[in-house]
Amino acid sequence: MTGPAIEVHGFTKRYGSRAAVDDLSFDVAAGAVFALLGTNGAGKTTTVETLEGYRAPDAGTVRVLGLDPIAQGPELKQRMGLMLQSGGIYNGARAAEIVRLFCSFYDRAADPDELLTLVGLDDSRAVTYRRLSGGQQRRLALAVALAGTPDVVFLDEPTAGMDPKARQMTYQIVRDLRARGVTVLLTTHLLDEAEALADTVGILDKGRLVALGSPAELMASHGGIRFGAPPRLDAGTAPASLGRVVEVREGHYLADVEATPARVADLATWAAAQGILLGYVRSGSRSLEDLFLELVE
């Protein structure tokens, strides 16, 4: 297929008078991993569930694999895998039963045993869902999402509740999917997760897209000088060469100017004069976390 795997154009969704998602547009190239970042209530799940065909847009259009998720739902569902933000699986069903059940739904079904091995639940196949740990439950949900050998996968907070080992396993599965040309859209509020997995990151805040780009682009754009110091400094005493100094969050500051060696020296001189111990000084780039905290109220 030639076009993007996922297309979102002017998508708006309201609940009552409140716009949960407001005029959202982005594309995801076929075979890419796209991470939708945002705080709780930013509109991530609303967006994903519209792409999955659970909700109709109030305005705008969404297409997945070129198909309308509602009007062409049956065709799309055969080629799409999804993992809800939580649950979705019978409490009393055994892991293997659930995987076999979902495999029976698809024309291009994966092998249930291979799926269980893939997500590391080989030893838990006879364990009921309610007796699996939180991380194991998420891995079972991931196996279910892959039951139809999908072309596109939606993962809503896939690693929530996973221990670091399970998280790394999930990352590897996402990378393997990407290597096979599967398009993945995942939501997360873990910035390192987006950084580790995504080709493209979109940051949602109050239903609006406030940043879009590759992790490298997002971190490189807009440098400035960042430093750590005790909270609530009087920024007014800072030298004019540092421009506007703001406390981005408690104890973390941004001097909103282009970073130069002279300005870093100015900062250090000012700090010494004020008796301020700088915890760190970083220039030229920022972490995704810095960006996120600057953009998101």
């Binding site: 049956p74 569902k77 939580s86 979705g88 019978y90 698809y106």
Partner: peptide, 18 residues
């Protein structure tokens, strides 16, 4: 009732089963 509250109906309804 429990299937509904655990999202089972949602996931199955959104799968090819429908």
């Amino acid at each position: 009732g429990y299937d509904r509250s655990y999202g089972v109906l949602k996931l199955l309804g959104g799968s090819p089963l429908g």
